[in-house]
Structure formats: structure tokens, C-alpha cells
């Protein structure tokens, strides 16, 4: 449904490389996530695929149409929800929805079944101006407006940034329901915990893709085993742990320190490490093996990328 082949985009006359040789493809009906920190190039990729930006090189197709030569046809087939709220703040919910339906030559009635689940939640405020809505309601309205013309591909650029955790979960529930309706969805997010909700994800850093796989696949591909370590003096622990082994990578993760054991080996590591830490004067020592999260995988890839 969406394919990109070696697309590259540079800004400021080629000095800033925003998207570097990116290739991926998204199947019909897939929920595909672009995961990466701010400035990784997610929005640039989306803006190229929605025909707002021309790539410097490479090619891409959306719903079978080339993004450069056939952009007119793409525009009537895709729904795009930019990262920033960009509906008319001085028009009401109903007016915004009605307006975007009409510019796509359709009516709200015709495709109401697509948005019904979402729209009923904001319908009681139908007469309220869009600018006066809360963050979560704005996102719901924006999603409705992006869906009202029954797009075949939906692009959601950081839809959950700045939205509270409850609304975020609700939002992902809505995306899952939409996928069941056969709409292909591309979503970008800087939140690693949302990655596991996608069918497949691409991890992006500095404009290039580090890995593309299903969330499970990426976690399974973690090259070594991972431990979570905790002790009574966490701030000191961060400094002491690296002295245990020269190859060790450790980083703070919530209230634990995650420990990558690549190049260290040994199944008796938990016991040895506990002894080492006890000798260093720590108490309440806990060392346990854990399954890597997407964030662990991302950090691991960055470390390997650098060394």
C-alpha cells in the first residue's frame, strides 16, 4: 500500500540530512509505526508521502500512485493528521467536520460509520469552537476530519504527543478498530511503549532506519541477555556498575538499571554481580533477567551504531 525506495531529503541546501536513504513498505490493512526520537525525520517522511514535500532522490508510492508524478490522485486517497493541531480554531466541531467532508466531495453522512465510535465522544460539544477544545478532544476531532473522506491510507504524525495517558490508550484503541475496517495506518511516535501496539515498526534515528520488524521480532532479535539491577543507593550504583566489566553497558530505566551483558557471558552473572555489589557496600541488591522492551532494543542499536 505504501512503498518507499531510497528516499532522501535534505534541508538548507543539502547541509542538513533529514531523511537518509529510507526504504520500507507497508501492506494493506497494516498498522505501521515509525518510532524514533524528536528530529529523527519522521515528519519529513510523512510530509513526503502526503505530497507536501518533494524528496531529493528516491521514489515512493502511496496506494499505487507515485508521490511526485501522481500526487493529485494521492491527495484524494490519503488522510493526514499533522503533528500540530491544524483545524480551524474559529469553526465549531460540526463545521470543521462538514468542511473537510465537502472539500473531498463527500458528506458527513456518507462515511459516518467510519467515525461514529470516535465522533459520539465529542458530539455533545458539536457547537463548540475547535480552538476551545481540550487536547484529547482536539485529537479526536482531527482524526475524524482525517477519516471523513474514507481514505485508503491514514497518516498520523505523532498523534499522541502531548496527550494524557488515558486519552493515549483510548486513541490506540480507536486505531485498532480502524485497522479492522481495512484502512492502512502509518503512525509516528516518539513513545517507545506505543511501539508494541503496532503490527510492524521501523526504528529511526538521524534520518535512517535502524531496523524494521514486528515489535516481537525486534525484541526477539535482541542479541544478548538483559538484566535489571536495583540496590539501595541507585545514584551510586550507576557509577559503580560500569567498573564491574569494561564491556558492560548500563543505563537507568525507571527505578532499575538495565544491564546489557554482550561480551561478558556467564550464566552465573547474577550471583557474581550480587557478590561484587555486596563487596562494594550496597544493600537490598536485586539482579534479575528480563525480556527486552522496544526501548532496550533501540538503545542497544544506538550503542552498536556508535561503536
Amino acid at each position: 500500500m505504501v512503498t518507499t525506495t531510497n528516499i532522501t531529503k535534505t534541508y538548507q541546501k543539502g547541509t542538513v540530512k533529514a531523511v537518509d536513504n529510507v526504504s520500507f513498505s507497508v501492506e494493506k490493512g497494516e498498522l505501521f509505526g515509525l518510532i524514533g526520537p524528536d528530529g529523527a525525520g519522521k515528519s519529513s517522511i510523512f510530509r513526503m508521502l502526503t505530497t507536501l514535500l518533494l524528496p531529493d532522490s528516491g521514489s515512493a508510492t502511496v496506494a499505487g500512485h507515485d508521490i511526485v508524478t501522481d500526487y493529485q490522485r494521492i491527495r484524494s486517497k490519503v488522510g493526514y493528521m499533522p503533528g500540530r493541531f491544524s483545524l480551524y480554531p474559529d469553526l465549531s466541531i460540526e463545521e470543521n467536520l462538514h468542511f473537510f467532508a465537502t472539500v473531498f466531495n463527500t458528506t458527513v453522512k456518507e462515511n459516518y460509520h467510519l467515525i461514529e465510535d470516535i465522533y459520539v465522544q465529542i458530539a455533545p460539544f458539536g457547537k463548540r469552537r475547535a480552538g476551545k477544545l481540550s487536547g484529547g478532544m482536539k485529537q479526536k476531532l482531527a482524526l475524524c476530519c482525517a477519516l471523513i473522506h474514507k481514505p485508503t491510507v491514514l497518516f498520523l504524525d505523532e498523534p499522541t504527543t502531548g496527550v494524557d495517558p488515558v486519552s493515549r490508550r483510548e486513541f490506540w484503541e480507536m486505531l485498532k478498530r480502524l485497522r479492522q475496517q481495512g484502512i492502512t495506518i502509518l503512525v509516528s511516535t516518539p513513545y517507545m511503549d506505543e511501539a508494541s501496539l503496532c503490527d510492524r515498526i521501523a526504528l529511526i534515528q538521524n534520518g535512517s532506519i535502524l531496523s524494521i520488524d514486528s515489535p516481537q521480532g525486534i525484541a526477539d532479535a535482541y542479541p544478548s541477555s538483559l538484566y535489571a539491577v536495583q540496590a539501595n543507593d541507585l545514584p551510586r550504583l550507576i557509577h559503580v556498575l560500569p567498573t564491574y566489566h569494561p564491556h558492560m553497558h548500563s543505563y537507568l530505566f525507571g527505578e532499575y538499571i538495565h544491564l546489557d551483558t554482550r561480551g561478558m557471558g556467564g550464566h552465573d552473572l547474577p550471583e557474581e554481580l550480587t557478590r561484587f555489589l555486596a563487596a562494594e557496600g550496597f544493600g537490598d541488591i536485586e539482579v534479575k533477567p528480563i525480556a527486552p522492551t522496544i526501548e532496550d532494543c533501540f538503545i542497544n542499536m544506538l550503542i552498536r551504531h556508535d561503536t
Partner: peptide, 13 residues
């Protein structure tokens, strides 16, 4: 400035 033109530009208008 408020970004609405982005939303308009992706429509077939």
C-alpha cells in the same frame, strides 16, 4: 501560521 494550510494542501482542492 496556525498550520491549517497543511490540512488544506493535502486535500484535492
Amino acid at each position: 501560521e496556525i498550520g491549517t494550510i497543511e490540512q488544506i494542501n493535502v486535500t484535492p482542492i
